[in-house]
């Protein structure tokens, strides 16, 4: 069976959940082979985790020489491994970095690219959700090695261990790859709540909060949910951009999405329309968000949410 390369998305060796999802998808296509680019001292812990979630092989690439340079060195690593191992496919996490690596790699390997897949079938056919979630598209790469970026939350990690054979790989990095550079980096502060793109429940607030997110956060905590925001709330400076749901923010597809004081503009829908269950609280009974909901409350979120939160807490006991 051919290898399926999975580029490992990690923070200082801590493998992020979307990578485990990629390993589960990779199993459908061949033998999952994780590519870990990072500090040599962090590789052992990462390898353990990757192995536990099905990696048959782990390519370990020490990043001392390339740390801090933007994407191109990683493109060269993947290119060189791909040329050596002729993988059945290369999977990356859909995100700024994953997409850019995928794009450059596609040109170098003269291979087709598919972005934002939400599923990959055994024969490599991908499923995507397009036009703000209004259409579902099936596609296939027809040339070269399929390069597929997959949205977080598209598969369930499969904790069935693989062989996890480690292969140290020493790439040859060109000087041209060492140009654009990360000059400074400030890690995002942990919120103590689930990651927006990984959460089973998301509670969001919009302009209708008037800037007071306490009712949103209260309900989110009662439900164990992540907090989201509309662009209007982000543009007003009430929430950081990393909380934004929508076309130019995060695309989420949780079991439950609760939109509060959000009108439901097409750009917002683009980020939440595929949620399994949708609930809205809005004081305007004509707000377009109500066209999407399974359950809606026409009312003032400042009254409805705190009362509901209290009842939920009481029910939980």
């Amino acid at each position: 069976m051919s290898e399926v390369l999975v580029l490992v998305d990690h923070v200082d060796g801590a493998v992020r959940k979307p990578t485990l999802e990629l390993l589960a998808l990779a199993k459908k296509l061949g033998e999952p082979a994780a590519v870990f680019i990072g500090g040599a001292d962090k590789a052992a812990a990462a390898t353990e985790k990757l192995k536990a979630f099905g990696a048959e092989k782990v390519y370990v690439v020490d990043d001392t020489e390339i740390k801090g340079y933007l994407v191109v060195p990683k493109v060269e690593v993947l290119q060189q491994i791909a040329e050596k191992s002729s993988p059945a496919a290369i999977l990356l996490v859909s995100g700024y970095e994953g997409k850019e690596i995928a794009g450059r790699l596609a040109i170098r390997l003269e291979s087709g690219i598919i972005t934002d897949a939400v599923d990959v079938a055994d024969d490599g056919t991908t499923t995507q959700s397009v036009f703000a979630g209004n259409f579902t598209v099936q596609a296939k790469v027809t040339r070269g090695t399929p390069i597929i970026t997959v949205k977080p939350n598209s598969a369930t990690p499969d904790e069935t261990a693989g062989a996890g054979t480690v292969e140290e790989f020493a790439p040859t990095i060109s000087d041209a790859a060492k140009t654009a550079q990360i000059v400074a980096s400030q890690p995002r502060k942990a919120t103590g709540r689930p990651e927006l793109t990984e959460a089973a429940i998301v509670v969001s607030g919009g302009r209708g909060t008037g800037g007071d997110f306490a009712p949103i956060e209260g309900l989110a905590d009662a439900l164990g949910a992540a907090v989201g925001a509309s662009r209007a709330a982000v543009d007003s400076g009430w929430m950081p951009h990393s909380f934004q749901v929508g076309q130019t923010g995060k695309v989420v597809s949780p079991q439950l999405y609760v939109a509060n004081g959000i009108s439901g503009a097409i750009q917002h829908r683009a980020g939440m329309q595929t949620s399994k269950t949708i609930v809205a609280v809005n004081k305007d009974d004509e707000a377009p968000i109500f066209e999407l909901v399974d359950f809606g409350v026409v009312g003032d979120l400042h009254k409805v949410l705190p009362a509901a939160t209290e009842q939920i807490e009481a029910k939980k006991g």
């Binding site: 598209v137 099936q138 596609a139 296939k140 040339r143 399974d294 359950f295 809606g296």
Partner: peptide, 19 residues
Amino acid sequence: WSEVTDTTERPPRTAGEIV
């Protein structure tokens, strides 16, 4: 280098309950 093999419109969401 890639081919779209099928496109399907998502069925509209069925109207939910609004109180």
